[in-house]
Design a protein around this nucleic acid. Structure first.
Length: 816
RNA sequence: GCGAAAGUGGCGGAACUGGUAGACGCGCGAGACUUAGGAUCUCGUGGGCGCUGCCCAUGGGGGUUCGAAUCCCCCCUUUCGCACCA
């Protein structure tokens, strides 16, 4: 009898062995084979079984690739800058770096205990100067090319933390950290000109055939390209005043009955007549005080709010003056901040017109029986002079051409995408490498003075705002141009900058004199398989695609896209003890399953098997304790097969049973190969469970050699999923070394092709019998066997048609 | 509101291209071994009926087809994304 299965005894031993043998080490000086990558994590310290999902999936694929003899680059690192470290510093008076490094150590240990292998020689932590200096270097290159700029823009500002916040740091209009209501402020900030790449980011999506459609749709919507026309509206009686409006429906211009400016529009002051200025002033002030979030929120029916300016603008198509309003539904940040309002064809304009008693003129004929309000679909133009009778596409084209020919307007493409605001008034990030000189203005820090390193003489807590501003040693700088005293920029970069190019650094993490080693990167990029959560569908993946295109334009990387295949794993949910519903694991929901206790009781292999078995990895699945037990039972049965193999050693066995075991074995090899190739370890595991069921069924009748062969094959197939137990049994069976070097099993296709097949026999589409036949049986022979099997259904009927699908089914269509 | 994805036993899920629906696991039932077992092993397990057999079943309703979980149309539900984008 084998000893009982005791994961505690075996797992750490194999973890040490794998690390010692450096199975994951790859020399990128050599030729590329495969580059796979999991999105590098923020080192928060605490990992739960939900986090484990994508790392375990990645490790499963990695081990399979290794066994198949491939050279796979599979690195891991840390997205190590960010707010939580700084908050921890304030709360617990520990330096962010110390806190971060401690978390990294914990997480690394967690990976080890999960049995996950990475090429740790290539580890990167983005908070280290040797990494972030290249953020700075790249920033300066982009500054040179005009791709980075300092500009004024309304931004989210937390009055209590005294910093700009990213949109994702604003939760329901409030600061995620302190809960203060976030304000909109016009501030000078650093931006990257991602809008210049909008069309390339959009077109590139079409070529990403191995990305989830969902992610591509989200990115397309985010970029929000729209084609239209922009034209000038003159203010009636004021020859000096005119503004531009943007529309996607120039064909409806004859139906314009008013115009609307955003309340922040620069012309508001000039346009407002004295008798309306009090009202306008009140309105503008009111809008200014509401945050963008409130303004755009649409709980229930939206009330369109606005005010008349007292002025009129001339519709260039008709020469008619129309009243100019201000309204909060027109945003300064989109298009020109001014629109022509055509209530007949636009629902928002319709509602506004109704609310303020403005005229409505239809310029597109709705179909008979139309009962809605604004009609936005296609139809012949009406009330539109020389456009009358034309349909939408043609009418848009004519109207646009008319604007161009008369010098009033032009074709224009607009995007919803805004430039990327990268400034953060925070300590724990990459310092933006510029200084402000009284004489020379904004001066980038020259390359030989990089990196601009974060100072360590920092007091966290106590006072508010960016601690960098209070560091005299940091802010005091000399101007690289004139050598006089200058002030150093204290903004740091958005951490998405770090994660936008780290995948290229992994190929050559220690190159000192360059951001990347171009030769190696040219060979190893792009990443062949990128695994991560769908929560990064837009931000990270859009920024990374943008910066990769920039690097491409700098001649530094091959191709235009960094990630060939994107795989989004689904969440693991569990019943929340707070809400009682299934929710994503989190401490606040009280539904976190910590791996430590689980591993202590059942072992890491059990967690891995269960994680991979519970459902297809791209789907959301529920964690249950019963399911864990099932996975553990499976491993115990695998362990117990040692006895069956030992007892049957030397037995000749019955040929039929032996054959069944061997056929099942080959069939399993094929299924596991196919299932893992399409990232379905759940069905691969099921196939292996079937194999052990078959082995158990024939444990006392099959030959000893067949049982042993099947067992050893099973161990190899199972290794990527349950690496520790399989290595241990492999060793017990008398093999040296590691399963990772034992090769991946192949199957005997001919043997499988020779097996009897079961034909389904249908009569009028209903299953009436099944017959076992030789494979490849021709139609006539199959028909005669099938006829016999369903004779009672054919009796007295006329067979009008026979459909034969070789080796699958035969169907009789009968009448009478 | 718009867009996308998904709805299969008591539960998680199989069924890859229209061809035997429910693999595998959980749970449940019966039995075995046990002083005992929430351990282990074996067998059974969609529903119904006149039970060697047949009928009904993949959210609901229609359709195409010899044949539909799979394709088409309408509706319902859930989840996710976007949400005044001119």
């Amino acid at each position: 009898m084998a000893l009982p299965y005791d994961p505690q005894q075996i797992e750490s031993r194999w973890q040490e062995f794998w690390a010692r043998e450096r199975f994951a080490a790859v020399d990128t000086a050599g030729a590329k084979d495969l580059y796979m990558l999991m999105m590098f994590p923020y080192p928060s310290g605490d990992l739960h079984v939900g986090h484990g999902r994508n790392y375990i999936l990645g490790d499963c694929l990695f081990r399979m690739f290794l066994m198949q003899g491939r050279q796979v680059l599979n690195p891991m690192g840390w997205d190590a800058f960010g707010l939580p470290a700084e908050n921890a510093a304030i709360k617990r008076n520990i330096h962010p770096r110390e806190w971060t490094l401690a978390n990294i150590a914990r997480m690394k240990d967690q990976f080890r205990r999960w049995g996950i292998l990475y090429d740790w020689d290539k580890e990167i932590a983005s908070c280290e100067p040797e990494y972030y200096r290249w953020n700075q270097w790249l920033f300066n290159r982009m500054l040179e090319k005009g791709l980075a700029y300092r500009g004024k823009s309304p931004v989210n500002w937390c009055p209590s933390c005294k910093t700009v916040l990213a949109n994702e740091q604003v939760v329901a209009g409030a600061c995620e950290r302190c809960g203060s209501i976030v304000e909109q402020r016009d501030l000078e900030q650093w931006f990257l000109r991602i809008t210049e790449y909008a069309d390339r980011l959009l077109e590139g999506l079409d070529r990403l055939t191995d990305w989830p459609e969902k992610v591509k749709v989200m990115q397309r919507n985010w970029i929000g390209r729209s084609e239209g026309a922009e034209f000038e509206m003159r203010v009636a009686g004021r020859d000096d005043l005119a503004f531009q409006v943007y529309t996607t429906r120039p064909d409806t211009s004859f139906g314009m009955t008013f115009a609307v400016l955003a309340p922040e529009h620069p012309l508001v002051g000039a346009i407002t007549t004295p008798d309306h200025s009090a009202e306008v002033g009140t309105f503008v002030e009111r809008v200014r005080r509401t945050t963008e979030i409130e303004r755009l929120s649409t709980e229930g029916v939206v009330e369109k709010r606005g005010v008349f300016t007292g002025s009129y603008a001339v519709n260039p198509f008709t020469g008619t003056p129309v009243p100019i309003y201000l309204a909060d539904y027109v945003l300064m940040s989109y298009g020109t901040g001014a629109i022509m309002a055509v209530p007949g064809q636009d629902q928002r304009d319709w509602e506004f017109a109704k609310a303020y008693g403005l005229r409505i003129v239809r310029t597109v004929q709705p179909p008979d029986g139309w009962v809605g309000e604004a009609y936005v679909d296609d139809g012949p133009a009406i009330n539109s002079q020389w456009l009358d009778g034309l349909y939408k596409t043609e009418a848009i084209e004519r109207a646009t051409r008319w604007l161009e020919e008369n010098g009033i307007g032009r074709r224009r493409v607009h995007y919803r995408l805004r430039d990327w605001l990268i400034s953060r008034q925070r300590y724990w990030g990459t310092p933006i490498p510029v200084v402000y000189c009284e004489r020379d203005g904004i001066v980038p820090v020259p390359e030989d003075q990089l990196p601009v390193v974060l100072p360590t003489d920092i007091q966290f807590g106590g006072s508010e705002g960016n601690p960098l501003e209070r560091s005299a040693s940091f802010t005091a700088a000399t101007c690289p141009k004139c050598g006089k005293a200058a002030r150093r920029e204290t903004d740091t970069m958005d951490t998405f900058m770090d994660s936008s190019w780290y995948y290229a650094r992994f190929i050559n993490p220690h190159v000192r004199d360059a951001m990347i080693d171009r030769g190696r990167v040219a060979r190893w990029m792009p990443v062949d398989l990128y695994i991560g959560g769908v929560e990064h569908a837009i931000l990270h993946l859009m920024y990374a695609r943008f910066l990769y295109k920039v690097l491409h334009d700098f001649g530094m990387v091959p191709g235009e896209e960094p990630f060939t295949v994107l795989f989004n794993q689904g969440m693991i949910t569990a019943k929340s003890s707070v809400s009682g519903k299934l929710e994503k694991m989190s401490k606040s929901k009280g539904n976190v399953v910590a791996p430590d206790a689980l591993i202590a009781r059942y072992g890491a292999d059990t967690e891995r098997v269960y994680t991979l078995f519970m459902g297809p990895p791209e789907k959301e699945v529920e964690w249950t304790d019963e399911g864990v037990m099932g996975a553990h039972r499976f491993l115990q049965r695998v362990w117990g097969l040692q006895d069956i193999v030992a007892e049957s050693a030397g037995r000749v066995g019955e040929p039929a049973a032996t054959e069944q075991v061997l056929v099942a074995m080959h069939h399993t090899v094929k299924r596991v190969r196919d299932d893992l190739a399409r990232y379905h370890p759940n069905t691969a595991t099921a196939a292996m469970m079937e194999l052990i069921n078959t082995m158990a069924q024939h444990q006392s009748s099959a030959s000893g050699s067949a049982l042993r062969e099947a067992y050893e094959t099973l161990l190899r197939l199972l290794h990527p999923i349950a690496p520790h137990i399989t290595e241990e049994i492999w060793r017990i069976l008398g093999h040296d070394g590691s399963l990772l070097r034992a090769g991946w099993p192949s199957f005997d296709a001919e043997l499988l092709a020779k097996q009897q097949v079961t034909l389904a026999v249908q009569v009028n589409g209903k299953l009436r019998a099944t017959v076992d036949v030789e494979p490849g049986l021709d139609a006539r022979a199959a028909e005669s066997v099938a006829r016999a099997a369903v004779a009672k259904w054919l009796d007295g009927k006329t067979v009008v048609k026979v459909i034969h699908v070789p080796d699958r089914m035969i169907s009789f269509v009968v009448r009478g």
